[in-house]
Nucleic acid binder design. Structure first.
Lengths: 223, 223
DNA sequence: CGCCGGCTGATACGAAGGTATGGTCGATAC
DNA sequence: GTATCGACCATACCTTCGTATCAGCCGGCG
């Protein structure tokens, strides 16, 4: 049976309900200290940094999190850091804080997906509310990511043929039609199809179709 | 055959490739006039208004479009208008222009989905580029809307039972299991299933599953 | 070289899907 | 009251699916 099973069966999801981490990057130590207290008082885990570089040196953690970020930082500024976080730490929404915000900067930050853009002074409540929203998004992103990772792992364990068959089957073709497309016999299609179903851990065709959709499998049956 | 066919067969999609319309709402007539020229020079159809009310009085057109909007308007202001447009004219992305933009205003506008938020003075190129992006989004939104309308029309033609069967089938249950859930026999399930497939114009189970997903049909088989 | 994994195919059989034909029943519309 | 429609069920028949069993071919690897 080892030859037909998918990848590792471990379905152990990373501790999604761990204490959320709120990262703070601001070059003003008094801001860091006051935010640290505020964050702690809400039951979150604060981690503060004085610069973008310092923050990036920190290894990625696997927990719901968000980033409270000053736009104007020495060295790499907030917007530049945002670009990197957007690709490397997709599950870490960003809340900007700034003393000197201008409109174009705000637009850029928001277009890049920032949760909020707050100008000092702002009330604690506003910030906390933004953090809650951000952590919520982080949680959603994390679970979505975990799901996609699982799917991709399964998909990676398929052979080329199995993938082809899966795509065509998920597009609605009958086994015999798949065979026609691929130039093989129906019985062989059945074999590959069965393999694919097992490896993908799909327990119905409907399941497989949904998985194919999530994986973005575009099947283009030559019309 | 009339009893088993779906709703109207007209697949005629609205003229999606009509000339895009660019609406302008600004109380400054000189702005309206200059934008009108600029928009015309790009081959789009400009329509200008001096107030939000005037704009809202205008009936909704069926064409790719966008809205260039001054935030500070007499009466209903730009952000208020945005709220209404977001629900009534989903296919009309908004580009804000303003002389006096502040950061909170910008954040609100962008969070509500604005494409751009430009402060005067801005170059024509920046505005035109934003309009192109907006019209692109509009086109996408329109075709998505058209597709969803078609789906919902089909779905609306199903009887209650057919919908129940469709949901359960799309969730991966076998006919006999669907029958068990609903307390009816397998053969009856087959009948409803066949009806549903026809009315939804689905030509495979995979099709039906995808449609159910798009329609957001949550099937909760009692475990 | 032998072994393994991927790909292919055949036969066989039971399960499930799909459709046609035909009928009952109840509610609703005309 | 009759027609219509939705829901229900049955028998019959064929197609498609899913799997098991068996087997041949080929390329990579120790």
């Amino acid at each position: 049976m080892s030859s037909t099973s998918g990848p590792s069966q471990s379905k152990a999801s990373p501790k999604l309900h761990a204490t959320p981490i709120v990262f703070v990057v601001d070059d003003d130590i008094s801001v860091r200290e006051s935010l640290e207290l505020l964050i702690q008082s809400e039951g979150w885990q604060p981690e503060t940094f004085a610069s973008a570089q310092e923050f990036l040196a920190n290894p990625r953690k696997l927990a719901p999190s968000c980033l409270v970020l000053d736009v104007s930082l020495p060295g790499l500024n907030g917007l530049d850091l945002q670009k990197r976080v957007a690709v490397e730490r997709i599950d870490m929404p960003i809340i900007f804080i700034t003393g000197q915000g201008d409109v174009p900067m705000t637009v850029q930050a928001m277009k890049a997906g920032a949760v909020e853009f707050l100008t000092k002074p702002f009330s604690d409540d506003v910030l906390l509310s933004a953090i809650r929203t951000a952590i919520d998004r982080s949680q959603t992103a994390l679970s979505h990511e975990a799901e996609m990772r699982g799917l991709r792992d399964c998909y990676a364990s398929l052979t080329r043929r199995e993938r082809e068959v899966m795509a065509l089957v998920a597009s609605g073709l009958l086994n015999k039609q798949v065979g026609g497309e691929l130039g093989i016999s129906e019985i062989t299609v059945k074999a590959h199809r069965g393999q694919a179903m097992q490896k993908m851990k799909a327990d119905s065709l409907a399941d497989l179709v949904k998985m194919a959709a999530r994986l973005g499998l575009a099947s283009a049956p030559k019309s």
